[in-house]
Amino acid sequence: MGMTFVALGVAFGFSYNFGSVVAPMRASLGLSAGQAGWVFSVFPFTFLALSGVTGRLADRYGPRPMLAVGGLVLAAGLGLTATAGHVATAVAGYLVVGVGVSCAYVPSVANVGAWFVRHRVQAIGIAVTGIGAGTVLGPIVTAALVDALGWRRTEAWLGLAAMVVLLACAAAMPVAARRRHADATWTAGRLAGDPMFRTLYASGFAMGLVLYVPFVFVAPMAEQGGVTPIRAAALISVIGFASTAARILFGLVAGRVGVVTAYKATTVTIWASFLIWVPSRSYWVLLVFALVFGAGYGGNIALMPAMLGHYYGIDSLGTVTGVMFTSASVGALFGAPLAGLLIGASGGYLLPAVVTFAVATLGTAGQVFLPKVHRSGTP
């Protein structure tokens, strides 16, 4: 669990820091807001789209080789971004970063889920707080390094640090024992035929369109209002702080009310945050938005593997979790660029905030009516 915490903190902390790099990158490469959105959006698209593959590989080979590959690939992606002279190279760099994070995320989280039985929800919640911790520290550290070294050297040094840490985590991570002959296995084909999973998948697509927009545009939105770059980057750190606390809090709540009820609460919290974002006009309202969004986002990410384990069992948890994450991949690819186009067309952030809220409403509606148990049972 400790190695997963560290690995996820580094992988996501050095990826979700894009808000601290985007302004100097745009100035250096001459990027529009829409182009900057594409640079970041290929990262969540890639790591989500490949999650079904890396989850299946983790079920077969375990988390250690996947985590080692993830460290090497993540470093290569950040290094490629550091050399970018054109938007295409920057996009390719963050695409490679997404491959690295995909190798680290689902395999390590599924390993924690398979290791614990009685306290699985709490264990996963604590392990994935590493994502929140990384999101807290990553943007602030990155902003300070960019100010001292420039964005290119910062990306290169972060890539080297990520490789060293993830390789060390791969060597030290304990691996959960798996049953040699599983009684039941959920494959991608079986999941596609399951009505409840199709509902989860459709709502996941809608949420994927909106979940990554704040990571790209909340800091530039604050800067447009006259806030300094460091204070603007702190909003991303607030999201990380709130998500860190929420992962533990919602894990405790799930222990009392059940993982499905707690998961629904996280989805409603995300929806409420976008309702706050729509009328935001000041830094302090954006700060409240960051707190509420971070809480919902962190709790949702923490409880999703446990919720899927509740419905589909643990023998195929890597596969089920990975396939589920692909639902948000297309949305993650197009969400930030579309928001950038709306910003460019309207000259402000009100229109994208309204559209984001409307899409979040659709995604929330698909999850609040989930049953407490999987009625069709395991295959």
Results as ranks from 00 to 15, higher is better:
239 I>E: 00
241 F>V: 02
171 A>M: 14
69 V>A: 15
235 L>N: 00
295 A>R: 02
6 V>I: 15
77 G>P: 06
40 F>Y: 13
312 Y>D: 12
98 G>H: 07
55 G>W: 02
247 R>K: 13
183 D>H: 07
30 G>I: 11
229 P>A: 01
325 F>T: 06
64 R>Q: 10
227 V>M: 07
10 V>S: 00
272 A>K: 06
39 V>A: 13
205 F>G: 04
349 Y>A: 04
100 G>Y: 08
204 G>Y: 11
227 V>K: 00
182 A>F: 05
98 G>S: 08
221 M>E: 09
154 T>L: 12
139 P>Y: 03
164 V>W: 09
348 G>W: 06
66 M>C: 10
292 V>T: 04
29 L>D: 13
374 H>M: 14
6 V>R: 00
254 A>P: 03
158 L>C: 06
168 A>C: 14
148 A>N: 04
360 A>K: 07
153 R>S: 15
379 P>R: 11
137 L>E: 01
180 R>H: 10
32 S>L: 06
91 V>K: 13
357 F>T: 13
344 G>C: 01
374 H>G: 14
228 T>K: 02
363 G>K: 02
299 G>T: 07
22 V>E: 12
375 R>D: 14
28 S>W: 13
119 H>C: 02
33 A>T: 11
285 V>T: 15
184 A>P: 05
125 G>Y: 04
350 L>W: 11
236 I>N: 01
266 T>R: 04
313 G>L: 08
181 H>T: 09
335 G>P: 08
296 G>L: 07
329 S>G: 07
9 G>H: 00
305 P>V: 05
364 T>A: 15
73 V>W: 03
332 A>S: 13
348 G>Q: 03
111 N>M: 05
32 S>R: 08
336 A>P: 11
20 S>T: 03
92 A>R: 09
125 G>M: 07
114 A>G: 05
29 L>M: 13
184 A>D: 13
189 G>A: 11
255 G>K: 09
152 R>C: 14
342 L>I: 02
161 A>E: 06
302 A>D: 04
326 T>M: 13
294 G>W: 03
320 V>Q: 09
214 P>S: 02
288 V>Q: 05
80 L>M: 11
363 G>R: 05
166 L>G: 09
77 G>Y: 05
184 A>S: 10
96 V>Y: 02
30 G>R: 09
371 P>L: 14
77 G>T: 09
52 G>N: 03
199 T>I: 12
25 M>P: 07
237 S>H: 00
335 G>A: 14
337 P>I: 09
379 P>A: 09
327 S>P: 07
216 V>P: 02
248 I>P: 03
94 Y>F: 15
44 P>G: 01
131 I>E: 06
33 A>H: 10
115 W>A: 11
246 A>M: 01
88 A>P: 11
285 V>R: 12
76 A>S: 14
244 T>N: 00
282 S>F: 07
277 W>P: 00
142 T>L: 01
181 H>D: 12
115 W>H: 10
137 L>W: 03
113 G>W: 06
181 H>F: 08
327 S>C: 04
341 L>V: 07
276 I>P: 02
6 V>D: 01
213 V>S: 03
190 R>Q: 08
219 A>W: 00
95 L>V: 10
128 V>W: 03
259 V>Q: 08
316 S>D: 10
